[in-house]
Design a binder for these strands. Structure first.
Lengths: 154, 154
DNA sequence: TTTCTTGCAAAGAGTTTGCAGCTTC
DNA sequence: GAAGCTGCAAACTCTTTGCAAGAAA
């Protein structure tokens, strides 16, 4: 069976880019932390464990390259850092996010909940949708119970 | 009739902030450019026309304050700058955006298209939604017609 | 007077770039 | 050996902060 790394490798080659050891290490870190929403710095620190000689600039360059190739999506939750999120293979659209205002956790919603909404937008606004970004800010299920106790503020 | 500025002033006073000339000039710029999605720098340059002595730091501080008061929303379209968008008065939720990949224009959708989706998320993910960010990336109605000609790619 | 606010300059954080050296074909 | 890639350091951009001076209650 062809692995995900292999497919990414092919994708790079098809545009005459190479899968160097540094790039491979970076991709592996992303694959191993698929659930997370790593910043460039985060990725850098994790890659350093596998390939200590790597430079931060290379990580940035690799992430930029992967973004171009649509292997990852660059996202921004408003905290001043870009985060990189592996695209779900085969997914037509980018998944959604739930950001908890209490604990900061970011959960993902893989289901595409926007099909109907997109139809409305395409027809009503005559806008050809290529991609979307949907993030909900609120209180996650983990913090939900706790909230009753500190209702002092808010 | 009470103007929008007055209401914002009251809101400031209620938290013992003052509507200084600099803050007023900043708010006016935002009101006069409600359609746009100005960066701090943009706001600064526009405010300077009314109040040339103002400093960039004051603009940043004012925008931060207005964000706290929920008068404006800080948004990020991934181009490395924060943009500030006046909240539609009385709107329960933040409006949506259409970003054109062709010409870069940003249009707004005032309607809340997410009511159904939010119900699904709150129930299915046990997540208490406080706010949302929804942006579509695609081709706007203005660029739509032009596209037929350069169908070479994609 | 006391508190809040401002402008300036400096600092900080995140990201990009120039360049010489190293790989790979 | 030409082309692509890397690590390092410096540069850059956007934003925040410290501080002394100014304005308002």
């Amino acid at each position: 069976m062809e692995s995900r790394i292999d497919r990414i490798k092919k994708q790079l080659h098809s545009q005459s880019y190479k899968l160097t050891p540094q790039r491979e290490a970076t991709v592996r870190v992303l694959l191993e932390n698929e659930e997370d929403h790593l910043s460039a710095e985060d990725v850098y620190l994790l890659v350093k464990e596998k390939a200590p000689e790597i430079g931060l600039a290379t990580v940035y360059r690799t992430l930029e390259l992967l973004t171009e190739l649509k292997v990852v999506d660059k996202i921004n939750f408003g905290d001043g850092v870009s985060r990189y999120d592996l695209r779900t293979e085969g997914a037509a659209h980018f998944h959604h996010h739930l950001v908890c205002l209490e604990c900061g956790a970011v959960d993902e919603i893989q289901e595409d909940l926007l099909e109907d909404v997109e139809k409305v937008v395409e027809e009503g606004w005559n806008f050809k949708i290529k991609d979307h970004r949907l993030t909900f800010h609120g209180i996650c299920h983990r913090c939900h119970g706790k909230e009753e106790n500190d209702e002092t503020s808010e």
